[in-house]
Amino acid sequence: MLISCPLCGPRDATEFRYVDERRQRPDPEQASPQQWRDYLYVRANPSGPARELWLHRSGCRQYLFVDRHTLTNEVQTAALARTEGTR
């Protein structure tokens, strides 16, 4: 599996660490126990297109939003989490 890091180019997946599905942290002041525990423990685990958070740990150490097909491992896009959506 190859992931195209926006800073380093296409790299083998072993350089990266899968972190989590891409999710929004609930407001800790407002969240019910159910919402918070969904955030901690419940994952969609899709069979197909997935939106994920990865870390280029053995590279530029940037967190990436990776859109990946879990059946083919084809990576559609990988964008810097730091700047995605800000420009």
Binding site: R17, V19, R57, Y63, A81, T86
Partner: peptide, 13 residues
């Protein structure tokens, strides 16, 4: 280190 960077690069950009 990964934990700090995760906050700084995602939730607290």
């Amino acid at each position: 280190y990964d934990w700090m960077e995760r906050w700084l690069q995602t939730e607290r950009r």
